[in-house]
Design a protein around this nucleic acid. Structure first.
Lengths: 341, 341
DNA sequence: TTGTATGCGTTATCAT
DNA sequence: ATGATAACGCATACAA
C-alpha cells in the first residue's frame, strides 16, 4: 500500500480510503490511485484488514459426519447454494466437519473463538463443545439449517418434514392403502420424528389403525441409508400380512429397499407402492421411477445465508425464529393402487 | 493475551511463546500460563497471528461449476477426504467456485493475492485469470486433482483413466463383444480423451475394427450426465446393427441410459452389456446392478494434500510432477456375454 | 478532501 | 529462560 501511495503521490491513508471506501475520496485522485494499484498489481491484504476492523469475512458451515450420502445430493446442493449466496455478498465459505471427537470440536471452537470466522451455519443438532466451552458462547451469529433448533433459541431454516410426509401418506391412503411400512432414520433424530409424525397424523385423521404401520430401521444414521434399506428388506420379508405402501425417510433407503424386495419377487407398484424423502435426481431413473419428496435445498440455503447476514448486522432479532420452506411430492411410477384383496 | 500475562504474572511475549512454541519455555511457567489461559477462556486470535507470521493456514479448493452431479459422489468424497487430511495437519478448507465469470475468478484471485489462502487444490483445467493477472502468478503452491496438468508444470494427482477403461474394454472383448457404444463427456475434456483413448487402444490391440465403436454425447459437461445418457438412448435407438456393449464416461450417463434403453425393450445384460466410470455407490442398486470403474477418491484427496503440504514447505520440487492412483473395475450383473448372432 | 498518527493482537528480535 | 519492544498491513480518529 505504501508503494501504491508513493506511485500515486498521495498518503497511505488516502489509498486505503480509495480502495476500501471509494466515495470518501476525490474522483480524480481515486482514478490515479487505482491506476497505480493496477500497474503494481496490488491486492490489499485481507488478514491485515480483518484484524484492523475486527471482523472476518469468512462463514463456516458445520456438517455432522460425512459430506456424502448414498445417492442424495442434498449436502452438496446446500453447500453450493450457500457458497453462491455468500460470495454474492462478499463472504467466503469454510468447511468445518463435526465428527463428534474432541479434535474436530476443538478445531471448530478455535475457528470461532480465534476470530477466523464471522458466523456459522450448522446442520447438526448439537453445538460443538469441549472443556465447558461451547460454540454458543463465542458470540457468533449461528443459523441452523434443515433442523429446527428454534427451541434452543437458534434461528432455523427448515422444510415442512411433517406436513410433506403427511400429504404423501394422504395420497396413498386415498388410493386405498391401509397397511404401511415405514423405514426410519435414527430414532431420536428431528427429521425422523417429524416424518414419522406426518405419517401417524395422516393415519389418525383417516381413522386408520396406527398398528397397521410397521416400523423398520431407526438405528443407523442417514449416511448409511443403503444399509438401512437393505435391513428393511429383511424385516419386510418376515411380515405375515405385508403392507401395501412403504415410506422411507430418505431416498437412499428406498433405493436399496426397492432393489432388495424386487429380488424377492415383490412388484412395484403392483404389490407395493414406495415413496421417499429427499428428491434426489437419480430417483427419476430408478426401476420404477421413484416418487420422492423434493426438498427446496437451494432456497433453504439462500434463506439461511440471508438470515445469517441479517443477524451479523445486528438485525433480525425480532423476526420469527423459524422459517419453513415447503417441500413438494414428485409423483412417479412407484406409486399405484394397492392390490385387490 | 495481555490479560493472560497479567494473571500468570509473566510478560506477554512469554505467553506467546508458551502457547505457540511450547518447549521454548520453562515447564513450570508453561503450566502456569496454560492455567491462566484456561480460566480466562482465552483463544489466540488467528488473524493477528497470520498477519504477523505472514502465512495463513487456509487452503482453498477450486471447483469448476457445480458441486453436485446426478448421483455421483466423487466431488463430496474428495472434499471430505481433503478436509480431513487438512485438519489433521492444522489447516482449514475454503471453497472456491469457478463459474468462469469474472466475479468468481476475481474472488479467487483476491483470496490468493490477498493472502487469505496459503495454497490451492484445483479441479479445473483452466487457472482463474482476470485482467492479465493469473493465479499462477500468486506465488501460491497449487496441486491439480483428477486432471493431469503436469504439462503446465502443475503437480497433479490423477487416476489411470485410460488404463482402467482399457481393462474394462478388454474384459468385454474377452467375452466376445465386437461392437461398442461409447457415451462421451465433453469432447475436449482430459477425462474423455483418456477414457475413449483406453477403449480405442483395447480395440487396436485386439485387432478389432475401430469403426465398430459408435460415439454418442461429447457435448454436455459431466454435471449433465443424466441428459447425456438420455440423448444417448435416442442415438442408440437409431442404430441399424446395434452394439452389444456400452461404455459410459460417467455413472450418471449409464444410469439414465440404462433406464431409457430398457424402456425400449433392450435387455441388460442379455442384449447389451454396460460399464461406466466413477464408482458411485448407487450403482450396486441399479437394475441390473451396474458395473463401474471405481475411482480412488479418498486416496487421491490424501495424496493431493500431502503433495501440497510438501510444496508449501518448499520441498517436493524434485518429485515427479504426476502421481497416479489406480482405479479398479467393479464387475456386476450389467456385464454378460453378447447375444449369439 | 487529504495527511498524520495510532492501534488492532500477535510473533520475532534483541537484550537481559 | 524471560522481558521489552518493534513490526506485520491496514483502517480510522483527528487535525489540517
Amino acid at each position: 500500500m505504501a508503494d501504491v501511495a508513493k506511485l500515486a503521490g498521495v498518503a497511505i491513508s488516502t489509498v486505503s480510503r480509495a480502495l476500501a471506501n471509494p466515495g470518501r475520496v476525490n474522483e480524480k485522485t481515486r482514478v490515479k490511485i487505482e491506476a497505480a494499484a493496477k500497474t503494481l498489481g496490488y491486492t490489499p491484504n485481507a488478514m491485515a484488514r480483518n484484524l484492523r476492523v475486527g471482523k472476518s469475512n469468512i462463514i463456516m458451515i458445520i456438517l455432522p459426519g460425512s459430506l456424502h450420502y448414498g445417492a442424495s445430493q442434498i449436502i452438496p446442493q446446500v453447500l453450493q447454494s450457500i457458497n453462491q449466496s455468500l460470495i454474492q455478498n462478499g463472504y467466503h465459505l469454510m468447511i468445518a466437519n463435526l465428527d463428534r471427537d474432541e479434535t474436530s470440536e476443538r478445531h471448530i471452537l478455535n475457528l470461532a473463538f480465534g476470530g477466523t470466522v464471522r458466523g456459522a451455519i450448522i446442520l447438526s443438532s448439537e453445538l460443538p463443545e469441549v472443556g465447558g466451552k461451547s460454540l454458543a458462547d463465542a458470540g457468533l451469529p449461528i443459523v441452523s439449517l434443515l433442523l429446527d433448533m428454534s427451541g434452543a433459541e437458534l434461528p432455523s431454516v427448515v422444510t415442512n418434514d411433517r406436513g410433506a410426509v403427511k400429504e404423501a401418506a394422504e395420497a396413498l391412503i386415498a388410493l386405498g392403502h391401509k397397511r404401511f411400512f415405514y423405514i426410519a432414520g435414527p430414532g431420536d433424530n428431528y427429521h425422523d420424528i417429524e416424518r414419522f409424525g406426518g405419517l401417524a397424523e395422516a393415519f389418525e385423521e383417516a381413522g386408520l389403525d396406527p398398528n397397521a404401520i410397521v416400523r423398520s430401521g431407526g438405528v443407523l444414521s442417514y449416511q448409511f441409508g443403503f444399509e438401512t434399506g437393505k435391513q428393511a428388506v429383511e424385516d419386510f420379508a418376515e411380515l405375515e400380512n405385508r403392507p401395501t405402501a412403504a415410506i422411507a425417510a430418505s431416498d437412499d433407503m428406498a433405493i436399496s429397499f426397492m432393489s432388495g424386495v424386487q429380488a424377492l419377487g415383490v412388484r412395484i407398484p403392483e404389490d407395493l407402492s414406495v415413496v421417499s424423502f429427499d428428491g434426489s435426481p437419480v430417483c427419476e431413473y430408478c426401476h420404477p421411477p421413484l416418487s420422492t419428496i423434493e426438498q427446496p435445498v437451494e432456497e433453504m440455503g439462500r434463506a439461511a445465508v440471508a438470515t445469517l447476514l441479517r443477524r451479523m448486522e445486528g438485525a433480525g432479532d425480532r423476526e420469527p425464529l423459524r422459517q419453513t420452506v415447503p417441500s413438494r411430492l414428485i409423483r412417479r411410477q412407484s406409486i399405484g393402487a394397492p392390490p385387490s384383496e
